[in-house]
């Protein structure tokens, strides 16, 4: 899976789940200040990303510490490399 595909999948999944404005979904966008999410949203984020990429995030559960969309792309990219079934 290429980085572009990862970005497209992440943006699509999050935009649908959290009703985010696609125009605001830039790598530097902060989840808390720019996208209006908070730590209570982390569980839902894990669930939708696990479904979208068919990977396991729950065991790591570092999503709550990810600050920007760019951090999330990097994190998912690493996980996809580690879990080749994605």
């Amino acid at each position: 899976m290429t980085r572009e595909e990862i970005i497209k999948t992440v943006n699509g999944a999050l935009a649908e789940e959290f009703e985010l404005d696609p125009a605001a979904m830039k790598p530097e966008a902060n989840f808390f200040t720019d996208l209006g999410l908070d730590s209570l949203d982390a569980v839902d984020m894990v669930i939708v990303l696990e479904q979208a990429f068919k990977i396991k995030i729950r065991t790591n559960y570092e999503v709550g510490k990810i600050i920007t969309l760019g951090d999330l792309y990097n994190y998912i990219e690493e996980l996809v490399k580690q879990q080749p079934n994605a």
């Binding site: 908070d38 730590s39 209570l40 982390a42 569980v43 894990v46 559960y61 999503v63 709550g64 510490k65």
Partner: peptide
């Protein structure tokens, strides 16, 4: 208080 905590901490 959920402010500034991760989901794991709140759970």
């Amino acid at each position: 208080n959920s402010e500034g905590k991760t989901a794991e901490e709140i759970i």
